[in-house]
Design a protein around this nucleic acid. Structure first.
Lengths: 238, 238
DNA sequence: ATTAGATTTATTGTACACAACTAGACTGTA
DNA sequence: TACAGTCTAGTTGTGTACAATAAATCTAAT
């Protein structure tokens, strides 16, 4: 069975074949593996296997390893000679500091070089609202996680500060797996409701052109979400 | 001529030989190349040459490339097939956003999980003050840059928030070259004086155990330093 | 002299073979 | 059985040859 990406209908190998240069090929491999990790296709603790992946992607281990090495620098993988390439664990305690930092950075998204409220930007966010409504009707774990990722990327576009974007993205991908991991122990429909409420609030702010309000709203939800996650973990351990 | 590191007296090849595993070897190569880039041993725009570097380090291109790839992800290098591995340029205009972000993050260093004011920490900072005095007596470009780097690392130890440290470090290494690049057009003795004054202020705050004051002081100096850099650039272009 | 095209040369990208290493299975002994 | 040592299978790390690419140089025609 060859896996296909949802948007293009092409296999990874085909997309890599079509890429113009090494940098594009790297981006495809890096993005695909990162996506699989944070969608728990590769759950924490699982082993990747360079040769198998290289075969699937239709390349040799050399270019694949470049993607793996950067993912290791990102903290999503850990390679050890003789052992393997393992997906790192996610633990809410260890992510506390990351969450603290993310909250502060979200506040900065509203402060540092906010974008102009263009038509495209508003259209992007109203599409998010639509997807949130669809998710509310038929909530699933995977769609929840996917919307979470896509909404993050939409939100990132509110600031023109590229270094801030880059940093926020790295931190996001360090934390986003925790939801998919813990949601089985939580009330999915309720969490989806809360998340959709957040999206509603933020899209309202974006449509008014008040990006700072959007940033504060997101910061508040991030904080509350983390508290719910932690409460879940505490009850589960008793 | 074999280059030797100042602290150990060993060549890079010898240090790599002595390393226990691949991760240590990677750290040695990564740190050494990054240091050379930000000390302008490899000035912006210069070409590295994988084979020559691999020869000097006594390894093959494969492990060396891992270090280069991460440095490329850090934004310090850019590799292109058929062209070479080039050190990226530093431009004050492009670094404006990075500086803005660094200022905000510095404020967070005082806010997010500050460390306890241990004896070791205070000793480290009083050593910094001593080095600053030495530099004031005999100011040189290279010593100025070195103290700037080492003082940054000392300052990083004021917060226990590891993600914040990691992020701050990446951003620091994106910006620190601008000083060495522009200082020839400025008054070195004056800049050294100002920097030593900053160190004095911050060490005072650290010795009192007031890390938040230290962070605000640093933020203020960072801001003023950037303004001086920019003013220099503006006068130079007229 | 200029310019378009071919050629050369130098560099990174890729593939592959093998070395180094680890964890677990196996085996012999007390 | 318990345990220590050895062996084996499987993995990542390293070295090396070659392919792909791009910039500079040369060449020839206009």
């Amino acid at each position: 069975m060859t896996k296909r990406t949802s948007d293009t209908g092409k296999t990874i190998a085909e997309r890599l074949e079509a890429a113009a240069n090494a940098q594009e090929r790297f981006q495809i491999m890096y993005g695909e593996i990162r996506d699989r990790i944070c969608m728990l296709v590769y759950p924490p603790g699982s082993q990747l296997g360079e040769e198998a992946l290289a075969d699937e992607f239709g390349v040799s281990r050399s270019p694949l390893r470049k993607a793996l090495q950067v993912l290791e620098a990102d903290g999503l993988l850990r390679s050890q000679q003789g052992v393997g390439t393992l997906v790192t664990e996610v633990d809410i305690e260890e992510l506390t500091q990351v969450y603290q930092l993310r909250m502060e950075l979200n506040e900065l998204t509203g402060k540092l070089s906010p974008c102009l409220p263009t038509r495209e930007l508003k259209a992007l966010f109203s599409e998010m609202r639509k997807r949130a409504q669809d998710l509310r009707n038929t909530p699933t774990r995977a769609d929840f996680a996917r919307l979470n990722i896509d909404f993050f990327h939409a939100f990132q576009q509110l600031s023109e500060n590229q270094p801030l974007r880059d940093v926020s993205e790295k931190l996001f991908y360090q934390t986003c797996r925790i939801w998919l991991k813990l949601i089985p122990n939580m009330d999915l429909a309720k969490e989806v409701d809360i998340f959709c409420g957040e999206i509603d609030d933020i899209v309202d702010a974006v449509e008014l052109g008040d990006f700072q309000a959007a940033a504060f709203t997101r910061r508040a939800h991030l904080s509350m979400g983390f508290i719910r996650l932690k409460a879940q973990k505490d009850t589960a351990s008793h």
